[in-house]
């Protein structure tokens, strides 16, 4: 298991690969056991609206902040108190996303299977690598294939990622109605394929040390 990390930025320079959905699924699944802060750096504020209007689970602190300077300070302050800080970013190259990736302990890059998605995932990963070099620190990054269908296209996308030397998670999220429903219902199904996929994703992120196993409060000696 890797070193525990607490700031996970979800980024991609392309819109629509499921950044907010992944953020919602992680927040909803982990809120019962960890203190989660989700920072919404996307001006569409889809994550914030979901948290306000739809989400029904254990408390998750969601703050909208698209300004890069305020976001940098918010990440630093919340990282000190939360078990896990999730940062959802806008789907185009922008300053706030770049700051969120620089400040991250790890970056997750959701990608669909299309050529443009894989190309933008590669651009995002190269940017993270450049930021890590500039910061002289390791910023681990992985692609998460999203809305996967068991088709030749999905296998080809995985092969393209591998050929480009882009690290990706073994876990994938399928093209399931349950994820779309979650954006309206505020709940992720507790059973079925979607629940199993998110559990597998969380297990892999924990194995990487990107998500803590225990809540911060459990380490406090009374």
């Amino acid at each position: 298991m890797g070193v525990f990390m607490s700031v996970l930025t979800i980024a991609s320079s392309k819109g629509g690969p499921g950044k907010t959905t992944v953020c919602q699924a992680l927040a909803a699944s982990l809120a019962g056991e960890l203190r989660i802060v989700a920072l919404d750096a996307d001006p569409t504020q889809a994550l914030s609206r979901w948290a306000t209007n739809a989400y029904e689970g254990p408390p998750v602190e969601v703050l909208a902040e698209p300004d890069e300077t305020r976001l940098a300070h918010l990440i630093a302050s919340k990282a000190d108190t939360a078990d896990l800080v999730l940062v959802d970013t806008a789907g185009f190259g922008n300053r706030a996303a770049t700051v969120a990736m620089t400040s991250a302990d790890a970056v997750l890059v959701p990608s669909l299977s299309g050529e443009a998605d894989v190309t933008e995932a590669e651009k995002t990963i190269r940017l993270v690598e450049g930021l890590a070099r500039a910061a002289r620190r390791e910023i681990p990054v992985r692609v998460l294939l999203n809305r996967v269908r068991r088709t030749t296209l999905a296998r080809h996308a995985a092969a393209e990622l591998k050929a480009a030397g882009l690290p990706r998670l073994a876990a994938t999220l399928s093209d399931l109605v349950a994820y779309g429903e979650m954006t309206y219902s505020g709940r992720l199904s507790a059973s079925g394929q979607s629940a199993a996929e998110v559990a597998a994703l969380i297990a892999e992120l924990r194995e990487l040390g990107w998500i803590p196993v225990f809540a911060l409060q459990q380490h406090v000696i009374p």
Binding site: P66, D67, T69, A76, R95, V99, A135
Partner: peptide, 24 residues
């Protein structure tokens, strides 16, 4: 648990690495 950069350093690195990116 982390060698995360300070907010000021993160802003400086991000600006230097990608100076032409627009604000969000």
């Amino acid at each position: 648990s982390s060698n995360r950069p300070s907010p000021e350093t993160a802003l400086s690195i991000a600006t230097a690495a990608a100076p032409n990116l627009p604000p969000t």
